Simulated scan of single mutants.
Amino acid sequence: MIWASQAQQAAIWAIGFLDEVWWSRFALPPAHAWQTTDAPIHLREQNWQKADPDTKALACYGVLWQRGPAEAPIRDQMSLRFVDGRPVSDITTQFLDWCCTCLERQGKTAWLLIWDNASWHYSKMVRTWIRGHNQQVKASGKGVRILPLFLPKQSPWLNPIEPKWIHGKRAVVEPNGLLSARQLAERICSYYHCSYEPHLSIPEKIS
């Protein structure tokens, strides 16, 4: 009976390690964008930016999901969303909501969320959103509760998603050309075997 109870809990619980990372496009500007080598560096950079309107780096939220027994965890599935801009509280709640929607489709009812102490993780906005989200799940009996667990400060080695980022960055580098932001994002998603989703962004305020 105890074994059955543990199996049932494993079926409805999700364990996910969340982190954000910047993906640099790691490419030299096209040759025609450069002036002569005698030109000041700031002028050469200005020409590069004109020829290449995409952002130099993409911010990305990611979750590394864990399954299997605690003594031999399996961590081979990732969920990613890219960001227009940088990680902030408003976008963090969007990402959490999206993850919960995906987990609900899988029949999960609770998410043990393990992440670091970034300011946009424990901000008042995010804490208020999680509390309200959990209250709504409890009242309706539908959805996925979030149980946040913070890692000790300045301890990235405790988050198993960190080496995943390192290996991914080595794999998607394009040494012989300039990738567009879209090409880079699609290459990253292909490496992690996950679908490319629309970028998260803060809605523009209507005046």
Rank of each mutant, 00 (worst) to 15 (best):
P152Q: 02
H167A: 13
Q135A: 01
P53S: 07
N47A: 07
T101V: 00
P148R: 00
H121I: 02
G16I: 07
I130Q: 01
Y61N: 06
F26L: 11
V173K: 05
R25Q: 09
A181V: 05
R170Q: 13
K153Q: 03
Q8T: 02
S123R: 01
D19Y: 06
G143P: 07
V137Q: 04
W48S: 09
M125K: 12
K56Y: 12
Q9A: 07
C99F: 03
D54K: 13
W115S: 03
Q94D: 01
Q136V: 03
Y191R: 11
I202V: 14
Q8H: 14
E20D: 04
C100K: 01
A51E: 10
I206P: 15
F17W: 15
A59Y: 08
R145Y: 05
K50H: 13
W22Q: 13
A59F: 05
L64G: 09
K169H: 09
V144Y: 02
H167E: 10
Q66N: 09
A185H: 12
W3G: 01
W65P: 11
L96E: 09
R86T: 11
A14H: 06
G168F: 03
P198E: 15
F17L: 14
R25H: 07
A4R: 14
Q106A: 12
N47W: 11
L96Y: 05
P87Q: 00
K205L: 14
N117G: 00
E162L: 06
A14N: 01
V173P: 01
I41M: 15
A51H: 11
S89F: 05
Q94C: 05
E45P: 03
P69W: 11
I166Y: 04
M78I: 15
I130C: 06
T93G: 02
A110C: 10
M125E: 10
I206T: 15
W22K: 15
L184V: 12
A51Q: 08
T101N: 06
H42G: 05
L147G: 00
P163N: 07
Y191F: 13
W13V: 04
D52Q: 14
H199D: 14
L28P: 06
C194F: 10
T101Q: 03
A72I: 05
G62S: 08
T55I: 08
L200K: 04
A171C: 08
P156R: 01
K124A: 11
A171K: 08
A31W: 01
L178A: 14
A10V: 04
A181F: 07
A185Y: 06
I15F: 07
Y61I: 04
L64Q: 14
W23E: 08
Y191M: 10
I12F: 12
R81T: 02
T92Q: 02
I206R: 13
S123L: 02
I202H: 14
W165A: 00
I12R: 12
Q106T: 15
K108D: 03
G177F: 06
A57L: 09
Q94K: 02
E20K: 01
I114C: 09
Q183D: 03
K50Y: 06
P87N: 02
A118G: 09
S207N: 13
L149T: 04
I146T: 00
C100A: 02
Y122G: 02
H133N: 03
R44F: 12
K164Q: 11
S119W: 05
K108F: 09
T101F: 04
L147R: 00
E197K: 11
A10P: 07
W48D: 07
K205P: 06
Q77S: 14
W165M: 13
